[in-house]
């Protein structure tokens, strides 16, 4: 009867099996990453202790963009193959992406004050990340703007694809325009521009953020599926009541 739960049921089983592991690994990675970031890595010779903001700022910036890319990919799957889980995944990912983007903007601002002497500059990188935040907000608002949740999901999918033009702009803004923002610190793993003592906490934090995203995504998707199932059961109960 409710065909969209046919394969979501399998998803729920997989999610339940994966969740304890991903949650545990997230905690371990965060613990290790924070220890390395705060105690086991040196201060920067130019920036001093403030460089430690990088260990939150950079991974959340990566995740903010990765999350939007994830939503865009899910949107293609939702629009082309009409896979029901893709809609739910995109819907679940959007607030997480918005949160990562807020973290980038706030930590960037905190980092900018001591190093550049200002909380905010209107350069290409900062502006395009701010636009990314608005795109996330638009996506979330559009998802919830319709009485029919599926209509909201599909409209948000189209928006996600339109907004995807912003991602390359963010990525390359540092190279295209001469701005205050420093260029990418990690372009190739074999010859990184930063020392390995800083690379270790950075990568640890990046993986921690990534697994946090996976964990929260699974939690939110499962909750959404359960809510949908509850609505469906209520509806069929109401229908049976009307029929009898």
């Amino acid at each position: 009867m409710f065909h969209r739960f046919a394969n979501p049921a399998r998803f729920s089983r997989i999610a339940s099996a994966v969740l304890p592991w991903s949650a545990a690994i997230t905690v371990i990675l965060f613990a290790a990453g924070i220890w390395f970031a705060l105690f086991a890595s040196p201060a920067d010779y130019q920036q001093g202790q403030t460089v430690r903001i990088m260990y939150v700022h950079v991974p959340s910036a990566w995740m903010a963009m990765a999350c939007y890319t994830f939503i865009a990919v899910m949107s293609v799957i939702a629009l082309v193959w009409k896979h029901p889980l893709a809609d739910i995944a995109a819907k679940a990912a959007a607030p997480l992406g918005a949160a990562f983007t807020i973290i980038v903007l706030v930590t960037g601002s905190l980092w900018g004050k001591p190093t550049w002497g200002t909380w905010w500059v209107w350069d290409a990188r900062l502006t395009s990340v701010l636009v990314l935040f608005f795109l996330y907000l638009g996506h979330i608002a559009l998802t919830h703007a319709f009485d029919n949740p599926q209509r909201g999901a599909r409209a948000a999918a189209v928006l996600a694809l339109v907004g995807f033009v912003n991602i390359p702009i963010i990525k390359f803004s540092v190279d295209w325009w001469n701005t205050l923002h420093q260029p990418a610190s990690l372009t190739r793993l074999d010859t990184p521009a930063i020392d390995s003592s800083m690379l270790t906490p950075l990568l640890l934090m990046a993986f921690a953020f990534m697994l946090y995203f996976v964990t929260m995504l699974l939690v939110r998707m499962r909750a959404d599926l359960n809510a949908a199932r509850t609505r469906a059961l209520r509806l069929s109960a109401a229908e049976r009541a009307t029929a009898s």
């Binding site: 009867m1 409710f2 065909h3 969209r4 009485d147 029919n148 949740p149 599926q150 209509r151 949908a228 609505r231 469906a232 509806l235």
Partner: peptide, 12 residues
Amino acid sequence: LACIRGERAVFA
């Protein structure tokens, strides 16, 4: 033929 509107199966 089956049709789903929103989350409800209208007919199948």
